[in-house]
Design a protein around this nucleic acid. Sequence first.
DNA 1: GCCAACGTTGGC
DNA 2: GCCAACGTTGGC
Length: 159
Amino acid sequence: MARKYWLMKSEPDEFSIDDLIGMENKTARWDGIRNYQARNFMRDEMQVGDGVFFYHSNANPLAIVGTMNVASEPYPDPTQFDPDSKYFDPKSSKENPRWMLVDVQFTAKFDPPVLRDNLRETPGLEDMMLLKKGSRLSIQPVTEQEWKIIHELAGVDPK
DNA sequence: GCCAACGTTGGC
DNA sequence: GCCAACGTTGGC
């Protein structure tokens, strides 16, 4: 199947692209997703090797700060079973886990980052979910065309 | 920190 | 299955 493209949000106070770069193998579990639509993208549609933009939300600046690849098949988010985690879900069970995730591996950092304000001004990106008012979805599909245009803005060759 | 937008929960 | 109440997200 053809490679797909995604955008995933994280608050840098929680987990930033530099945190990802600092991880072993520059790979992290994308845990804590508690929205069904976002989960379904990870569980049902992502494939190893898909391209992902890393977006800093609730941040200054708001920006796409780099890229990652999907690096695992979907599997249950372990934090849902941990009573000490803020992502603990008492209604989930190991027999029937509610929340699935994938691993992601760092591929490139955009320096400088591609600002959201800049995305807004760029022809061809008008339909991006990220730019729509009230769009809160933390994992969003991105088209191949958008993937290319944003790499041009970043001055980075797509990986 | 505020609050609009939106998602989820749970009583009925 | 509706929908009011509540919780969360995320830009500002």
